[in-house]
């Protein structure tokens, strides 16, 4: 009757034989078979794509054949164009995340720890945080032009909001009783910060960081599509202008791969962080 093991919702008249069978299959084999099952849909779609192309259901300008996409991907990779554009995009992400999360953490800690700062800044920040980032871009263009500064500024904007919110919330939501313990043992301010606030808020600090990176990723592609002459987004704009849809597909695929890798590595770090926290306790 424990609610902790939450199974899929019971469904009347569900056939149960599979559920009985599954535990007997070895853990590794099960995982492997799940992975295989997960590949069914992409493979089917790929098959459909190939089928549609060979039977000329859709004009080739609108749907390039899979092998053409693959070929373009390889050519772009071998010529180094893909790597250089990707490197530019990733460095934009890197700088913006660095700048944006630094600002976000500072701001978050400040308004989280100081009641005065909170009273003065939080209302404005709350309104500011609800403005969509894309809305800022035109005004940033006016002040910064359309060069590198624009991209870094716009993407940093996207990072600041989630990082600040998560940091602030993480600090404000620290359980009172933890702080009381610190009071009982007469911790100094620095001790409270380092031994209570920081560890207790760490999960939300990290989750804000993760959201920030994902927002940066969103904003990056947007500004690169809007105003850029290099980068992975530009590659897509270029492909679209030349009506070379294979390039656009390559762009989507590369963006997907980077997105998945970012997500996986962030998850990995998060799980390491958590196990480290548990080990420390």
């Amino acid at each position: 009757m424990s609610d902790i093991t939450r199974p899929a919702v019971y469904w009347p008249n569900n056939s149960k034989w599979l559920q009985h069978l599954l535990p007997y299959v070895g853990g590794f084999a099960t995982r492997l078979s799940y992975a295989a099952v997960g590949l069914l849909l992409p493979l089917a779609l790929l098959g459909l794509w190939q089928f549609a192309v060979t039977h000329e259901w859709i004009a080739i300008q609108l749907l390039p054949p899979p092998e053409l996409v693959w070929q373009s991907l390889r050519e772009l990779w071998e010529s180094g164009d893909l790597a250089s554009n990707l490197a530019i995009s990733l460095s934009r992400i890197g700088w913006s995340v660095l700048i944006g999360s630094s600002i976000g953490w500072l701001l978050g800690f400040w308004i989280g720890l100081s009641n005065t700062a909170r009273a003065y800044l939080y209302p404005s920040f709350e309104v500011f945080s609800q403005f969509p980032v894309v809305g800022w871009v035109p005004i940033l263009i006016i002040f910064l032009g359309i060069d590198e500064a624009l991209k870094i500024a716009a993407i940093s904007f996207a990072v600041v909001v989630p990082v600040t919110v998560a940091t602030y919330k993480g600090i404000v939501n620290i359980p009172r009783n933890l702080l009381e313990v610190a009071q009982v043992y007469r911790f100094t301010r620095i001790q409270i910060l380092l031994r209570v606030v920081l560890p207790a808020a760490l999960p939300s600090l990290f989750s804000g960081f993760r959201q920030g990176i994902m927002q940066a990723w969103l904003a990056l592609v947007f500004v690169e599509l809007l105003a850029s002459s290099e980068g992975i987004g530009y590659l897509m704009v270029w492909g679209r202008q030349l009506m070379q849809l294979d390039l656009v597909f390559v762009g989507v695929i590369v963006i997907g791969i980077v997105g998945v890798s970012l997500d996986l590595s962030l998850r990995w770090i998060e799980s390491r962080l958590q196990s480290w926290r548990h080990a420390a306790h």
Binding site: A8, Y34, A35, V37, G38, L39, L40, L41, P42, L45, L62, W217, L218, L220, V221, F222, L225, G233, M236, V237, G239, R240, M243, L245, V248, F249, G251, V252, I255, G256, G259, V260, L262, D263
Partner: peptide, 25 residues
């Protein structure tokens, strides 16, 4: 979930605006 979940989770990682050039074509 086993069949569609992995594809969904992968597609979700594609930055939203990347779809726009395709969709507009």
């Amino acid at each position: 979930e086993r069949i569609v979940g992995p594809s969904f989770n992968t597609l979700k990682q594609i930055s939203l605006f990347a779809w726009l050039p395709l969709i507009s074509t």
